[in-house]
Write a protein that binds this DNA or RNA. Structure first.
Length: 228
DNA sequence: CCTGGGATTTTCT
DNA sequence: GAAAATCCCAGGA
């Protein structure tokens, strides 16, 4: 199925892909769910990124919840600062920060104002518009031109998906409920809870008892997650 | 298969 | 000045 021109990264008409002619943006109400429920509800939904006349669409396959100021893994555990003030803002806002000096991470703010919480998008499945991103990636790496390896390596991590979607600090604070550049959309195919697996969050070994919380969620049959 | 280190810069102490 | 919600690659088993 990966042979010939039938690349997974080829844009298919949305009509044949989803059985719908228009992407249906997720409304404000969607974001007003408990953070953990929402982190699971996000699995299967689409991220839509518009850059000029180009459009990139990815399916969310892995998320991670950061909940409250007691969560030692959360940036908000040290209070409201210039960086973290977004997390204390309204649900449905993008929280984007630079990590390790080189990568951006994309989060969705949740919960009521003044309660700091967010969901990190850890991995997506490229659906449409990623051909150029794949070409860029091919140039930058030494993968012996293995299409399969590249397709599965383009967005399987929080830093990588931001690179592929061209998400950076300029989109910090973007309102996903009305933004034209970055928003989420419904997937007519419902995700069943039996497809979801919970796991420990990644890269938070410093977080005391919070390091073992099973606040990472992923679609267990997806080839596009960052880690099993 | 696994482990360890380097890249690179903002943020907070 | 140290650490960081990461990624990539080299080296050893």
């Amino acid at each position: 199925m990966l042979r010939g021109s039938a690349s997974k990264l080829e844009a298919e008409p949305l009509i044949t892909l989803f059985g719908m002619s228009k992407l249906k943006r997720l409304p404000a109400k969607f974001y007003h769910q408990n953070t953990f429920k929402l982190a699971k509800s996000l699995l299967g939904k689409f991220i839509v990124r518009k850059i000029g006349s180009k459009i990139l669409i990815g399916k969310i396959v892995e998320t991670e919840a950061y909940y409250g100021s007691k969560d030692l893994a959360s940036h908000a555990s040290r209070g409201k600062t210039e960086r973290t003030k977004i997390m204390f803002g309204p649900a449905g806002t993008a929280y984007i920060y630079l990590i390790y000096g080189m990568y951006y991470c994309f989060n969705i703010v949740t919960e009521a104002k003044e309660f700091p919480a967010a969901i990190l998008i850890r991995a997506i499945q490229p659906i449409s518009g990623f051909k150029q991103a794949a070409l860029n990636y091919k140039i930058k790496t030494k993968f012996n031109n293995s299409e399969f390896r590249i397709q599965n390596s383009l967005t399987n991590g929080p830093g990588k998906l931001c690179r592929a979607l061209k998400i950076d600090k300029k989109l910090n604070g973007e309102n996903l409920i009305n933004s034209k550049k970055l928003f989420l959309a419904e997937n007519p195919l419902k995700t069943n809870s039996s497809q979801i697996k919970s796991a420990k969050r990644i890269g938070v070994d410093y977080a005391g008892k919070y390091k073992d919380k099973l606040w990472r969620y992923y679609l267990k049959n997806s080839e596009f997650i960052s880690k099993k």
